[in-house]
Design a protein around this nucleic acid. Structure first.
Length: 219
DNA sequence: GCGACAG
DNA sequence: ATCTTGTCGC
């Protein structure tokens, strides 16, 4: 797929903060998706002691969840890991990988948070905006917010609250494991995001999209 | 000033 | 994320 030109990529957290503040108003928090037939998992790994960033895209048919296309991209790492600025480290390589995908997916499931972020601009929101696709953040651990305990049943969830706002949901995708942190990224509502994460999750804690992408990003 | 802190 | 083997448990 074609990737639009992006904002300049910052070198410091201070510059990155300005970009986040400029972009946050563009996030669409309502459903703006068509028929979902292809869902993409997005994940990133690192090689050579972190000097190389390796991004992977796994496109699965929906609702069958069969792998139909994939891409891997490697490029030098240019931004350090700083909590709250993950997207500036990982997205450039992700765009390289997405560019190799023939047809734009209908939905992106990203490793990390969407608007469950200090400035509401986690990687899923940032990526969704840059490529103008519906995107959901699927985090494995908490960045910001508080929540009540989640019941031990698959599909149970609790709102994730931060500074008086509901920024996401803590979702039990599997009994006996830690819940996932789901937040909208772009062009999707929280409830719809939860629904798609559940429908992409079968036997394991993580969605099948994420699991495929993770394998590709690791080796 | 003191912690917390996605991947 | 990554460095790393076997091992406990369903």
């Amino acid at each position: 797929m074609k990737i639009q030109q992006q904002h300049p990529w910052p070198a410091t957290a201070e510059e990155a903060t300005i970009i986040q503040q400029q972009l946050r108003g563009d996030i669409i928090k309502e459903d703006q998706l068509g028929a979902v037939q292809r869902v993409a998992g997005v994940d990133v790994g690192f090689e050579e002691g972190g000097t190389i960033t390796r991004a992977a895209i796994a496109v699965l048919s929906f609702p069958e969840l069969q792998l139909v296309e994939h891409a891997i991209a490697r490029r030098p790492t240019t931004f350090p890991y700083i909590p709250g600025f993950l997207s500036f480290r990982e997205i450039p390589a992700v765009l390289d990988a997405l560019e190799q995908i023939a047809t734009p997916p209908d939905l992106l499931l990203c490793d990390g948070h969407g608007i469950a972020h200090p400035r509401r601009m986690g990687i899923a929101a940032h990526l969704g905006l840059l490529v103008n696709l519906p995107a959901v953040g699927v985090g494995k651990s908490l960045l910001v917010g508080k929540h009540d305990e989640v019941p031990e049943e698959r599909g149970a969830w609790q709102p994730l609250q931060h500074r008086g706002e509901t920024v996401g949901a803590v979702l039990r995708t599997r009994v006996g494991t830690k819940p996932l942190y789901i937040s909208l990224g772009h062009r999707i509502s929280l409830l719809t995001a939860i629904d798609y994460v559940m429908r992409c999750t079968t036997k394991w804690r993580l969605p099948e999209t994420t699991r495929h992408a993770h394998k590709l990003a690791s080796g």
